[in-house]
Write a protein that binds this DNA or RNA. Structure first.
Lengths: 251, 251
DNA sequence: CGCCCTCTTGAAATTGTTCAATAGAGGTGG
DNA sequence: CCACCTCTATTGAACAATTTCAAGAGGGCG
């Protein structure tokens, strides 16, 4: 809930985008195109996509959309980190994923979003009208194929996460999480050694099905066991990645 | 592998198929076509699909494929119940889903299956060569769209399951599970009042991230609280579905 | 410099697990 | 058709991992 504030005398730090602020996109210059669903598009296709898309900026904590809202748009992340999550009526929260540059989101099997999405770090996205997606995919089967491929990937990741949530211990969960972040960072060519871990302990806990206290304790133990180093600025060094891999009991 | 049986004089109870036994498909007579990815196909498309597919029969406990195996086929379930699951090296198991008539499976983002699949009840499936799927989807965009739609559904269900595994109590998990089975049964027009629950307590436990003991105790409590009735033959009557819904804390 | 918020740390409480029997159900063979 | 056998489900009691409750430490920002 909540709203923009445009009270006089207040000079907002950020573009004060009501909800996300929009500007025209620029696909030609897109640094992460190779990671996105746009990757296989021809120059002509790219031009069309650009004409249909809008660029958004989100500040940390800003909501992209809420579960249950009409699913009018789909998005491509171009920069930053998002979290997607579901809530129970009493406020319990499950973060079902973190999204990074190149990730697509907004597919909905109903006409409403099945989860909420919120920025973890400053983020940029391209937005498309859902209504235009169908035609776009019809005209660009290579894009649809790519989307299907991304969906398959996501499905596999979701199952991995179910394994984690249903069967792994706290230590295994945290180790798996760090390795996941590292893999995803490597994938998109982001720094890995001092691995940025931009999300809060609460977000991590809600992702791993634990409490912040347990996450914190587990980090501390991994640190005192010499497997990781906790660096300032929310960065982590995976000192003994091999040991982490073993601990993660990864499939 | 696998074969038709036309041996004279022998009337096997079951086709006694080593691994899955195969026979030609018959899409025209398919009773569950409306539930499958084949639903939107034209008669011509249907004919093509039929020519590319083989029909399989699985007996309870039979493996369809194992995690890590080359993902050479994709499948449409036409009858019965399957479970799909992942294993940790030490044997811990997470059932990531139960599949029923109309469900599609086998999408893999790698060239190997990301999970194992095994029959819970006698089951029938149509099998396609993965290599032929691409061409098929190219020629039948309506089928590809349908597949994408199914994938979106699955993604949403996976997130619901993550919420369950990460944040729900044992009671909530079991209630959610029964309601899921009931919803899915209704969807495909299967009996709902005495709801068939064909999977073992172990399978249920591995699906819900619990132990068989906890599942059993929870069933017992739901029963003595008058919310359900445990009937012979693995059937359950959801006596107070409203109370179950509330307990499930469903999103 | 001090406030606020997040993270860390400690101790007690709990849910669910583990270990251990007992009870049932289904299937087989006499 | 019944007795027996085996596998699965149920139930009980002790145990353990994680949560909950409660402070305290650290860090960033105004």
């Amino acid at each position: 809930m909540a709203e923009s504030k445009s009270l006089p005398g207040v000079v907002p730090m950020k573009p004060a985008t009501p909800r996300p602020g929009a500007r025209p996109g620029n696909c030609a210059a897109c640094a992460v195109r190779g990671l996105t669903v746009c990757a296989p598009l021809s120059p002509a296709g790219l031009t069309e996509v650009e004409s249909l898309s809008t660029h958004l900026v989100l500040e940390p904590g800003q909501t992209l959309f809420d579960e249950g809202e009409p699913a009018d748009h789909v998005f491509n992340m171009t920069e930053g980190t998002l979290k997607v999550f579901k809530l129970l009526p009493d406020g319990r929260r499950q973060v079902t994923g973190f999204l990074f540059a190149g990730d697509f989101l907004g597919l909905a099997s109903q006409d409403t979003y099945a989860f909420s999405a919120e920025a973890v770090t400053p983020a940029r996205l391209c937005r498309f009208q859902r209504r235009q997606l169908d035609g776009l995919l019809n005209r660009h089967p290579e894009m649809e194929r790519r989307l299907l491929s991304k969906a398959s990937h996501e499905l596999a990741e979701a199952q991995e996460q179910m394994l984690l949530l249903g069967r792994k211990t706290a230590k295994e969960r945290v180790a798996s999480f760090l390795l996941l972040l590292a893999r995803r960072a490597a994938q998109r060519g982001a720094p890995v050694d001092p691995l940025p871990v931009p999300m809060s302990r609460t977000d991590i806990a809600d992702y791993l099905g634990l409490t912040t206290e347990t996450v914190s304790r587990t980090f501390t133990r991994l640190k005192s066991d010499g497997l990781i180093k906790l660096l300032p600025g929310g960065k982590v060094s995976l000192v003994r990645r091999d040991a982490l891999e073993e601990m993660a009991a990864a499939g």
